[in-house]
Each structure stands twice: as C-alpha cells, then as structure tokens.
Design a protein around this nucleic acid. Structure first.
Length: 603
RNA sequence: GCCACCGUAGCUCAGUGGUAGAGCAACGGUUUCGUAAACCGUAGGUCGUCAGUUCAAUCCUGACCGGUGGCUCCA
C-alpha cells in the first residue's frame, strides 16, 4: 500500500485510519522529524501506516545503516519526551507549494500538485517538523510510547523502478510496551519457523548455486513429505471426479502463439530452443496442453464437466532479486486443473470446486481462510452478460461456503473473474495458495466446443484452478505452519526405536520391522550413545515418536513411546503399539480427525 | 534488474595485512548408560570467483557469482 498516503492526499479514497494506524502514522511523523534533525539535507516523501507498522521514505545522499537507525531512535525519544502537539493547519495551495518549495521538499511539491483541485490542503506540525499530510494524528508526540525501528531498505519513488531509489525505514508502534514485545516476539517466531532455515536443519531441500537460483533440490525427507502430499492429492482428485493427465515440459512455439503466451507472457518464459529447425519453449503454464487434450476429439455435452488435473511442473523466468526460498522459484509444480463445462454448469461447478479446495486444505491442518473475489477489469474479453453470469455464480459460491470474503472490484484478469483464497497459519500469517479462475479467453483462442443435445456446437466454459498453488510454496507454508514438526501422517520419519544399551538391539530391530511391515515410517537408533543423547537427536529432528526399548521392554515385549512434545506414555505391547500408531497416522481427511497444529509450539 | 548488507570446514559461527580457529556433525577407539548433549583421538578449508594495490591479501579496492532485507511482480 505504498500509495496509501498518496491516495489520501489526492482524495481518491477516504480510508478512516484505525486508532492503531493513526498511532503508527504519527510515529512515522516523529521519525521523519528525527531524520530531518539528524540529516537536514534529507528530503521527505511519504510515510504511511502499513500492516504491522509503518514506514517513511527519504531521499538521502548516503543510505542509512544500523547505527543511523539507533541514532534516529534516540532522537525520536527526545521528540516524544518533548511531547509536541500535532497541530493541524489549513492553507492555500499556493502557500503550501511556496513553503515546501522553499524548504527544498521537492517530493512534497510533487504530491501537492497531484492533489485534487477542491481538496483542503492541510499540514501537521509537531515541534520543528511540519509535513504535508491529510492526517489524522494522535494528540501529541508523547502518545507514542512503544515503538521500534525495524529495518532499512531501498524503495523506488512511487514504486516505479524508473524513478529514483529512496531509503525506506520500516518501524512499528503499539499502544503499550507489552503489545510491542509480543509483536517483536512474533517476528522472532517467524524467523524461527523460516522454511529455509528449517529446510537446512531438517535436511528437507536445498537450492544449489551450481544448479541455478530458484531451482529446488528435494532431499529424501522433503521429497517424502511431497510424495505424501501428492499421493493424498491424487486420491482425492480421483475420488472427486477428476481425471489425471500428464503433459510434456516443452512445446512448439505454435502452441504458445495460439494460447497468447508469446504475446502476453514472453517476459516470464525461458528462451526457446531450436529442434530440427522448429522453435520449442519450456512451459510456463499447463493450460494449453490440457486444452489440446480436450480438443483431441469431439466432446459431447454428456461428458461435461470434464475435469482434468495434473501436477504440472512449469518454469518461469523470475528476476533474480525476487527469488525467495521455496516461496518464489523458477521451476515449480502447480497442482493444476482445468474444468471444461457448459455455461449452465458453472455455478454448481464453482461451489463444488471451492468446497473441494477447503476440504483439501483442512486436511493439512488449516482452519481459517479468507476469500477474495476479483471482478471484471476495464480491459476484458468476452461479453458482459457472460461476465455478469460468472460473477453471480462466484458470489453464490462464496456465499455458500460461509467464509468471510472481500471483493476486489475490477481486480480480475482480462480473461475472467476469479476467487483467490488465503489461509491463515499457526502464527496468524496469511498465505495465498488457492485460486479459482473463470477463463473466457482460451476457449475462444482454441475454439473449444462441445456438441449439445441439440446436435449443434457450443462454446465451452473453462475454469482454471490450483488448490495448493504450487507444491513448492505449499510445502514451505506447511514447514512454517508446523515449524517443521509435521503431523504424523506427513512426517518423513514417524518414529525411531531407541535402545538404552546394545543388549536391546535385537528386540529394537524386531519392533522396527513390525512397524515398517505395517507401512509405518520407522527406523532404529542403535548407536552407542546414551539415551539422553539419542532422545535429543530425535527431538532436534522433530520425529513425532521415540520408542524407547530397555531391558524391561525386552522382557515384556513392549516399547515405551515418548512424543516429541515430551509426553511419555506407558510402554505398550508391540501389536497394540502398531495398531495405535496406525490409527494416529491416518490422514485427517477434511481436518476432522485431529487438531490443526497441535504440539507444534513446544517443538 | 535496482538499493543496502552478507559470503571462512558438511552445519552454526569466531578471527587477523605475515597463507586460519571453535562447537556440532563425520571417522577411529573407550564407555553399555532409563527420557534434550559420556570421554579420548583423527581427519577436514586454494577463507565465493577473478583481477588490482602491496615485499606479502582470507583481511584493502574493483568487477563478477551467490545469498539476505526491501522495491516491482507473482503460484
């Protein structure tokens, strides 16, 4: 929301700031005042409240460093202690322009010139700092009690890379120290859960320089989680009326011409390759292949809806600076599907798709969702009546789901309206994974038709959807949601049999073999280390269960489970142990069987 | 791609203008132990790459490669 303040100033929107946003925005003013005192030559630009805090962008000769941040914080405390009131003043446009121009605040002049003609121009003064600003603010600087500057980063003026790079200082503020401490704690917690760190620590995956940025190597443990995810996904798709397909990684340029990708998506596609004098390109999307499968023969209305799904690996060129762990990569696998149907089937199909989506996500332990409907943009293909119909169907699907939603009017793609779904993770962060999009474009481009009951050909309506989004991103979200402590059904290793001394080796092997034969993922730790060391190791690997075997267990033909949350339970006879673990490891389809992120906070 | 910061052993990290250390892991041995770290030893690094400055560069300078935080974009 870099334009938030800009919008306020230009009067294009009138968002009332919440009390917390007001505080944060006021803190941004205090910070700007401190910066101007310490760096008089700095030019101020904008400083809005954002989710989690605020920022202010400055044009300075030299970038800020951490020492500067400390100095600025100290100066802010001086301003806060002085308890200056925020004084609002109205002034004429010319007066304002003259003042800011005289002060050398060229960015403010630019903002001023963008303000709608009949808007009242206001400034806010706190102590020696006056800023062009619509407000509101808190009463005085003394009301800023709990704040912290977080980081510095480069940011382009008005977010446009052709403009000058400014220095952005991020900070946060709360009404009391406790809330600030909690916020900082959450940031720490997010760091602790970072999938890149856990990916390394738990040996799940890596990204290797020699292979290339944004290209993922799945190590055995990560690959196991992925396999389990995909297997579950496949089973559910078969059980819900989908057919699975496979398509190649490259295709001739003709396909991409027809689909329009070569005109609209070329920037994100890897360079083509010459094969026998024909150009081939690596696929950035799966749709053209599925469409081609659909077109393979005449389709009857009786076959529709035809649901075609694929875990399709695509490659997209992303600028090096945006690559980020598994969340933003250059090669990834979409859990893609395309649904071909009659126009009259759209409403039902949307509801069905959304509910299927929620069912899958709940299985993985997510319980809170938010939906976003993006409607017809200015530039669009197809007829308005078609759009209206589709949007009505989308609204109905949203309503039926019973989940909170927001409408992004005009935010749809040119080819159709869509629903995006964000899920909330264990520490309250939102992640966008699922998307359900209506497409009026490809059916035209590829001339997709079916034969109706009237014997005539009719245009197909098409739906794209991805539930997990990309397997890579979803895996990263899972890692962070569970802090690496996967639920039993997804854990790469479900249990480790731990001996106390080498006397129990034989029984430990037997216990392990029995459980493995049941299909459980179990191994033994027969090393000569002490029990405590073995427990510690298993604990660090976040293995759900440790099965301790000492002389007593050998004599009784049992094993003593210790859960990774530290809970120890009675030793159980081997057969019973197996039955119990099998029951625990069942896939919680639809999330009914088990609590979402139980036990993850202690891990 | 742009701005800032970072790159030392498999991992986590010290360190210095005179070519390098710790802990963990690995390997060898001793110990056979009841719920988060037993002990001893061995091995392991052209200090991201390439240039430059210097008698001498892991350290200073530059370029490049890669990573991190942002900007922009997005699954």
């Amino acid at each position: 929301m870099a334009d938030q303040e800009l919008e306020e100033l230009t009067g294009t929107e009138t968002p009332r700031l919440t009390p917390l946003e007001t505080l944060r925005h006021s803190t941004a003013h205090v910070m700007a005042g401190a910066v101007k005192r310490l760096f008089p030559e700095a030019k101020v630009t904008i400083g809005p409240a954002i989710e989690g805090g605020f920022y202010y962008d400055f044009d300075v000769a030299r970038p800020f460093d951490d020492e500067d941040l400390a100095l600025i914080e100290a100066e802010m405390k001086v301003i806060i202690d002085a308890n200056h009131t925020f004084e609002r003043a109205e002034l004429s446009r010319d007066d304002a322009r003259a003042r800011f121009a005289a002060a050398g605040e060229t960015y403010k002049v630019e903002l001023l010139d963008a303000i709608a003609p009949d808007t009242v121009i206001t400034t806010y003064r706190s102590g020696d700092f006056t800023d062009l600003c619509r407000g509101p603010h808190v009463g005085s600087t003394g009301e800023v009690k709990a704040f912290k500057l977080i980081s510095v980063a480069g940011a382009y003026w008005r977010g446009d890379e052709r403009n000058r790079m400014l220095q952005r200082i991020y900070g946060t503020a709360f009404f009391d120290r406790k809330a600030l401490a909690e916020h900082l704690h959450r940031l720490e917690e997010a760091k602790r859960r970072d999938h890149r760190k856990l990916g390394q620590a738990l040996d799940l995956f890596s990204i290797n320089e020699t292979i290339g940025g944004g290209l993922v190597l799945w190590h055995p443990k990560g690959a196991r989680v992925r396999y389990l995810t995909e297997q579950y996904w496949r089973e559910e798709h078969f059980a819900n009326g989908y057919e699975l397909v496979y398509s190649p990684h490259i295709a001739r340029d003709d396909l991409w011409k027809t689909s329009g990708h070569l005109t609209f998506y070329r920037e994100n596609m890897f360079a083509g390759m010459d094969v026998d004098g024909k150009e081939y390109l690596v696929k950035p999307m799966n749709c053209p292949f599925h469409v081609t499968i659909f077109k393979h023969g005449l389709r009857s209305y009786r076959e529709l809806p035809l649901r075609m799904a694929e875990l399709g690996t695509v490659y997209r060129y992303e600028r090096s600076g945006v690559l980020h762990g598994l969340l933003r990569v250059r090669g990834f696998t979409q859990d893609d599907a395309h649904i071909f149907m009659r126009r009259d089937q759209l409403a039902d199909e949307l509801q069905r798709t959304l509910s299927f989506c929620l069912h899958i996500l709940r299985t993985f332990g997510f319980t809170e969702f938010k939906l976003y409907l993006a409607t017809r943009p200015e530039k669009f293909v197809g007829e308005i009546s078609q759009w209206d119909e589709a949007e009505a169907a989308l609204y109905e699907a949203l309503r039926v789901s019973g989940i909170e939603y927001e409408v992004d009017a005009g935010g749809g793609a040119f080819y159709g309206p869509k629903i995006d779904l964000k899920l909330r993770d264990a520490i309250g962060r939102e992640w966008q994974c699922s998307t359900i999009q209506v497409d009026f474009n490809l059916p035209e481009r590829f001339d997709l038709t079916y034969v109706g009951d009237d014997g005539a050909k009719h245009r197909v309506v098409m739906l794209h959807r991805a539930l997990l989004g990309s397997v890579e991103r979803f895996f990263a979200v899972l890692v962070e949601h569970y802090a690496g402590a996967f639920p039993l059904w997804l854990a790469p290793l479900q249990a480790r049999v731990i001996t106390i001394s080498e006397k129990q080796e034989e029984w430990a092997r037997e216990v392990c073999a029995h459980l493995v034969a049941l299909g459980l993922r179990v191994e033994t730790d027969l090393s000569p280390d002490k029990l405590g060391a073995k427990i510690r190791r298993a604990q660090l690997e976040k293995i759900p269960y440790m099965l301790v075997v000492g002389d007593k267990e050998v004599a009784e033909r049992t094993a003593a489970p210790r859960a990774r949350d530290g809970k120890q339970t009675e030793a159980r006879p081997l057969e019973e142990l197996g039955r119990w673990l099998m029951e625990e490891a069942r896939i919680p389809r639809g999330g009914v069987a088990r609590e979402a992120a139980a036990g993850t906070t202690t891990a």
